Structure formats: structure tokens, C-alpha cells
Amino acid sequence: MGAAAGFRSSLTLVRKACATCRECDVRHQALCTAMADEHLHRLEDITSPVLLQPNQALLRQGDPCRKVYSLTSGMLRLFTDLPDGRRQITDFLMPGDYLGLVDDDFHSQSAEAVVASSLCAFPINQMELLMDEFPSLRERLHRMARAALRQAHDSQLMLGRLAPLEKLAGFLLMLDARTNHHPHHGRRLQLAMSRTDIADHLGLTIETVSRCFTRLKAQGLIRLPEAHLVEILHEGRLAEIAGIGLSPEHLRLAAS
């Protein structure tokens, strides 16, 4: 199979992710985990599925905020357009993540699919009414918002590091913490995003990102079986390179 095969689901699989809430692959990690099975139909009543192809836009910077979204499969990139025409990727959303944790009337960032992705869309006004009726839903949203703030804080620490190798090591650990919840030696980490995406996220050039991957591989800290697959061999050493405040334990806490 081609690059990022682990993320490029067929349309059949994407449609399955948009099935009923009870059958959803991220039922127990997304917002809907706050709803008891007997009440899930209330959430389904206000849900509409969204299917995106690779690089297709979900929303653009400046668009009015009318809906919130839960990513059920694939990956999204969030980015801001800079005045000089460049883009700064601020985050990558994973299945189970929630998009729309904003108080503004307009979106401050754009969102695009990295690979084929599916989402559940909820009108904001109807979601607000549902959260009033089910306080557990609002509390779940608050917990997700707190986790997002912790993650944003850790991202700032990572991006504040001067050395490119520190940035890449921190990025790999943070991504691993969000996607692998059962740590073991030699974890395999799928990288759906391109090296260009990683460079735009870390504020580096694509050549620098490639050199850093090569250095980490040469030091025996990672393996690169494929272009979009990384096997983490020494998490502790990567944490040391990433810097204080990015230990594996702290990263797992931030991802919870």
C-alpha cells in the first residue's frame, strides 16, 4: 500500500465511522462518551455527517462559527495564514478530537483534511440546548477543553525550543501520547501528515526536518520502516532531547 496507508481509509470505512453513535469507532473517547446509550438518539437527531477527501477544506479562517465538529476518522490540520503568504500549522486533530472550542463568532484558523476523514457536525445552538439538558455532556466538553489547553501549553514549550532536533523529538512524543494509549517498547507511530506539514508546524524547513529524522534514526532512537511510519525505540532518550517538561509521563497526562 502507499504512503500513510494506515490513515487512508476507503469510503466504506469512512461511512462506517459516520454510522450510529453506538457503532462509532470513537464512541468512548469522543464527546458522545458522556451520553448514556439510551440517550444517544438525542445526539444523533442533531448530527449530520461530513466526509472530506485529502486536502479538502472543512472551514476557512474568517468563516462564521455555526457548527461544532467531532472527528471520527482520519486527520485534520489546523493552520493560520500569515501576512507573507506562508501558513503556520497550529495543530493536527485526531479521531475523537472536538473542533469548535471557541468563544468568537468567526473561526480564527482554517481546517483541512490531511487524509480522507469523517466528522460529525452539530449546529451550535442545538448543541447548547442538549448540553443544558444533559449536564454530563457539558462537563465532558469542559474536560476536553482543559486537555486542549494543556496540549497547547506543551506545544508552546516544544516550539519554544531552539534546536530543530528538540522540536522534532517533542513532536513525535506528543503525537505518540495522543495516539498510543498502551505504551510498550518499540511503538509504531503512523505519520499521516507530510514532511512539509511537519515543517510548517515546527517552524522549520522541510530539509531540516528530513535531516532531524535521519539523525534520530542514526542515534538508534527511532526506526523509519516507511516514509510515513516511525517506530519509537527509546522514549526516555527522546524525552531528554525534547527538554524539561516534555517527559513521557507528562505527555500522557496532557493527552488524557
Rank of each mutant, 00 (worst) to 15 (best):
Y69K: 06
C32D: 03
Q61P: 00
Y98Q: 12
G62A: 06
H39R: 09
E44R: 14
H39V: 07
L43G: 02
Y69P: 01
E38H: 09
T72C: 08
N55W: 10
H41A: 13
D63T: 05
C24A: 06
Q88C: 11
P83M: 07
V68S: 13
L43H: 06
L58W: 00
S70W: 12
V68G: 06
V26I: 11
L51M: 11
F92H: 01
V50P: 02
I89N: 00
L78A: 13
P64M: 04
T72S: 10
Q29F: 02
A57I: 10
P49I: 09
D91Y: 12
T47W: 03
Q53D: 09
Q88K: 14
M35T: 02
A36I: 12
C32I: 10
L43F: 06
A57R: 07
E23T: 13
N55S: 15
R87Y: 02
T90W: 00
S70D: 13
D91V: 01
V26F: 10
R86S: 15
V68R: 15
Y98I: 14
L58Q: 03
Q88R: 13
E44M: 15
G62W: 03
T33W: 15
G74E: 11
N55K: 15
R22H: 15
D63W: 03
G85R: 11
V50C: 13
C21D: 05
H28T: 14
M35K: 01
L40D: 07
L58A: 11
L51E: 13
T72Q: 07
D84V: 02
Q61G: 08
R66N: 00
R86E: 15
Y98V: 02
L43Y: 10
R60D: 03
L76R: 14
P64D: 07
Q88S: 01
L99Q: 04
R22V: 15
E44A: 14
C21P: 00
D84P: 04
Q53M: 10
L40H: 07
E44G: 11
L93D: 04
D91R: 14
L58K: 01
V50G: 01
Q56R: 09
G85L: 04
Q61D: 10
D81E: 15
R22M: 14
E44I: 10
